[in-house]
Design a protein around this nucleic acid. Structure first.
Ligand SMILES: [Mn+2]
Ligand SMILES: [Mn+2]
Ligand SMILES: [Zn+2]
Ligand SMILES: [Zn+2]
Lengths: 140, 140
DNA sequence: GCGTAGATGCAACAGAGTTGCATCTAGAAA
DNA sequence: TTTCTAGATGCAACTCTGTTGCATCTACGC
């Protein structure tokens, strides 16, 4: 199902409202490239949605708190969460154009689960993992 | 070998100088807890090293560019690089006290290498991986 | 249509990091 | 030891990002 539709449902379920700005924001996020609050703000204005910076920040925070988007590691950009299931999933981000894509890998999950057991003096709770690479467009 | 000694050698090799502030900075970094530029600045001042914020920023940048420290994911804090070899190594960070430790895992390296092959439309170049957990002190 | 919880706009603020430039000094060479 | 200079530091001003408080507005359930 389309991200923006799912997201609107989740917002409703969470007692939040569907406003024109939120609709526009969700559509923007649906595109392949993760954007940070400032970029989202600029893009929205460019598209005629004359919204305040502060509101963009607040809406990004809302989407993050509902788990509808994830932050790209090492930046403030956010990307839609594709896998609605609560299971483990990771992303690969294009180092050239910034495009991101979520994926799952049993092998990686297994390796990380194994680490969880024989950790070097630590009790493992979780992890951050993100791949870097070149998307199809940027490879060609 | 001690981190600060290795680091001084690397600085010399890179044509950089060993200043009182750099010595103090390297000693600070040697402690288990990663700190960001502002925290490093505060700590240095507390210890009587009356240095300017800007210089701390510049020195952190220098150490990063020489690969002597790594940033903790999702923060500006840096931690010493323990494995001087160019091989793959990762860190685990205590969610309670912030202590960090580098480690290696053949299993994880293998799983990531495998991913590299059958990536979903991407040409994989690298990855970011960091574990989160509780260190020995914080577990007890 | 109402009423209200939730959303937005506006203005002021806070914090992190950067830049330019003058001055200083670590370390090498004489 | 003295001299020289590339590299390091201090200082001040600035930019950029994100936050807070409060008044106003509106989505949406009734
Ligand atoms: Mn996800
Ligand atoms: Mn390292
Ligand atoms: Zn790309
Ligand atoms: Zn700890």
């Amino acid at each position: 199902m389309r991200f923006s539709v799912q997201a609107e449902e989740a917002l409703r379920r969470g007692g939040r409202r569907i406003t024109p700005m939120r609709r526009a924001l969700l559509l923007l996020l649906e595109e392949k490239k993760p954007l940070g609050p400032r970029e989202l703000h600029r893009e929205l204005r460019r598209r005629g949605v004359l919204v305040d910076r502060v509101s963009v920040y607040r809406n990004v925070a809302t989407l993050l708190s509902l788990g509808l988007v994830h932050r790209v590691l090492g930046s403030t950009a956010v990307r839609p969460c594709a896998q609605r299931s609560p299971s483990c999933h990771h992303a690969i981000v294009c180092t050239s154009c910034g495009a991101a894509r979520e994926f799952r890998s049993g092998a990686v999950e297994k390796a990380l689960a194994a680490l969880r057991v024989r950790a070097p003096g630590f009790v493992v709770q979780g992890h951050l993992l993100e791949l870097r690479g070149l998307c199809q467009r940027c490879t060609a």
